[in-house]
């Protein structure tokens, strides 16, 4: 363990911990935009600068490991002034678009601008303008809002192992794009969307469906493969309008294209909304009473005529444990047969 002091408070953390993590461990806030706990430290946004006694310039806390006896100061008029300048610089090249931005209310940059009280900007100047170029159905890119934090680039490389994008060009014209700005070779996992701190990357299907304040968030489990990823359904007026995942989950917040973007079947108009009974070869709408009585009657008759083992039931890997339990109990205890299976083998 390494002992150091942050703002005069003694803190003890394991060797290799960064100043930022040590401060967060001690519940001392330091603003960041480019930091992500699961990605390689980047040191690009410079907001997390702190003073370390004995070092003559501020250091980025996200990249600097603690050393024994280190004396860290996370806030001072000078540090806050530098942070404000950095924010002013970022905002001087950012559309003042919060009014219609999908990310409003869930945007790190917006929060920071609020806390540092930046409205007028003495550093206004040219802003980047990009032609809209989006031919994928999942990810909405607003490159003007990109602050080059590089999280999307790192996640695509370090977590997804795909490397579909990187930073190209230099200086003010630096931007995130696929190699040679050719077509995106992407798995559409949306991991990049999940870590973007601004409205630069959002889900295409999210557009104008409701923002943070309208949303009820419900934690549940993904309905697709067997990984058992935790997902958060964002619900507005009985509709799932987006899906995300928390970092402190089994899946560490990562999802696949189906898990993240494949939710619109839930509110699909073709969902079955009423029971049907076949009459004269055609399926006709029926009430629950009609349908259930009809089934009970027919199953009873088949059982009486051919025996319980002439009835079989197929359960589902998409249903819950409780439902599966009830289904087999129904088949075994109510119908009286062990003819119950599901599609484990398919």
């Amino acid at each position: 363990m390494i002992d150091l002091s942050i703002n005069g408070l003694p803190v003890s953390v394991p060797e290799g911990t960064t100043i930022l993590d040590a401060a967060r461990f001690a519940d001392i806030p330091i603003p960041t935009l480019c930091h992500h706990p699961k990605l390689t430290p980047y040191g690009g946004c410079r907001l997390c600068i702190v003073d370390v006694k004995g070092i003559n310039r501020p250091v980025t806390s996200c990249t600097t490991p603690v050393t024994a006896g280190m004396e860290v100061t996370t806030t001072s008029p000078t540090i806050e002034k530098l942070r404000k300048t950095i924010l002013e610089l970022i905002l001087s090249d950012h559309p003042n678009d919060c009014m219609v931005c999908e990310k409003a209310g869930d945007c790190t940059l917006q929060e920071l601008a609020y806390f540092y009280g930046i409205r007028e900007n003495r550093l206004d100047g040219e802003r980047r303008v990009y032609a809209k170029k989006d031919d994928n159905p999942f990810i909405e890119r607003n490159m003007e809002k990109c602050i080059l934090c590089g999280k999307c680039v790192r996640i695509c490389d370090e977590v997804q192992g795909v490397g579909a994008i990187d930073i190209a060009y230099r200086g003010f014209n630096a931007k995130v794009c696929p190699p040679f700005e050719k077509n995106l070779d992407c798995e559409f996992c949306g991991q990049c969307v999940s870590v973007c701190p601004t409205g630069a990357l959002t889900g295409k299907a999210w557009g104008q469906r409701g923002r943070q304040k309208d949303i009820k968030e419900i934690e549940t489990i993904c309905p697709y493969c067997g990984c058992g990823c935790s997902i958060t359904l964002h619900v507005r007026r009985n509709e799932v309008i987006r899906v995300s995942s928390r970092e402190d989950t089994l899946n560490e917040g990562w999802l696949c294209p189906k898990g993240r973007f494949g939710y619109s079947f839930i509110n699909n108009a073709a969902r079955l909304k009423t029971p049907f009974i076949r009459e004269e070869g055609k399926l006709k709408e029926a009430t629950w009473d009609e349908a259930l009585d009809f089934i009970a009657d027919r199953l009873g008759k088949v059982k009486a005529k051919y025996g319980a083992d002439s009835i079989a039931g197929l359960s589902s890997a998409r249903c819950t444990n409780e439902e599966n339990y009830l289904f087999q109990k129904f088949m075994r205890a109510a119908v009286g047969t062990n003819n119950v299976d599901h599609c484990a083998r398919l």
């Binding site: 309905p223 998409r318 339990y325 119950v340 599609c343 484990a344």
Partner: peptide, 22 residues
């Protein structure tokens, strides 16, 4: 073995197989 469907493990655990109870 990696199970292919979200609750295929559960369906089996719950006895939705012809020769075993939960």
């Amino acid at each position: 073995p990696l199970r292919g469907q979200n609750n295929v493990q559960g369906a089996t655990d719950m006895g939705c197989i012809p020769n075993q109870y939960p």
